[in-house]
Nucleic acid binder design. Sequence first.
DNA 1: CCAGACGTTGTT
DNA 2: GTCTGG
DNA 3: CCAGACGTTGTT
DNA 4: GTCTGG
Length: 267
Amino acid sequence: MCYDVETQLRRQLKKAVEVGAPSEEIDFLEHKIKQFVSDFGEDELSKNEHHWTMGFQHQKIPVITDEDPDNLQFFHWGLIPFWVKDKVTARKIANNCLNARSETMFDKPSFRAAAKERRCVIPLSGYYEHHWVDSKGKNKVPYFIKHKNGSPLFMAGLWETWLNKEKGEEVQTCTIATTKANNSLSRVHNRKLGDPRMLVILPFENVSDWLSPIEGNADIELLEALCIPYPDELLELYPVAQLRGKLGVGDMAQASEPFDYGLIGLP
DNA sequence: CCAGACGTTGTT
DNA sequence: GTCTGG
DNA sequence: CCAGACGTTGTT
DNA sequence: GTCTGG
């Protein structure tokens, strides 16, 4: 259920500076944020900043595409393949394409064109996963997953442009790649046997590789080699207050602050 | 042929 | 009408 | 967000 | 757009 994210770019930039991230990493965000504000205004940036947004809302999240790697853009979360004909199908597919399995993204009709030609990175301050307190998942505790030192997380993503023919509008969408979960994320996902997943986090030094054009199968293998579980020791996970519903804190800074449920045995 | 799917996630 | 699962 | 469910029974 | 199941 990799369906909830924290996208605050200003916060990411602040943290990157605080922890003394490499200057290329700071510039990568700083320059793009500046450029975006200069092009579209501060209000447009704030409007797209989210402490919490859930995939099914299909709000816009920040992307840096292979096509325009110098600029920051905001695309709707939930990929709509170019061949979708109508709005109803688009919504249905977007709901199911919030994530793309990296192991199969070059084969699946919904993803293969984007995997080859339209990759992006999605900078996040962190994302959320729901831990099941009981065996039925009646009670869930959301966890926030962030870099241990607070640095931005660069997620591997794919993007598409879809033409809404009824409206005559182009809609730009994106999805976040997943891979096998590492140990700590498997523990947060405490369900029965199966195939626990996590989002693909790219070390900053691999971001440019992810955004580079590919020539053939050898290059596809290089991309696949980037889609591996992020090391446990570089991540920090902790429970946060309920995100959704009446009792949820929703799109507030509080969403990613630690919350004590007073429950023993939580991972 | 041709309608229907095309996907993910610990499948409540 | 209201809750829930995806 | 929004489509779909909304229930019971001694056992699908 | 392209593949698959009937």
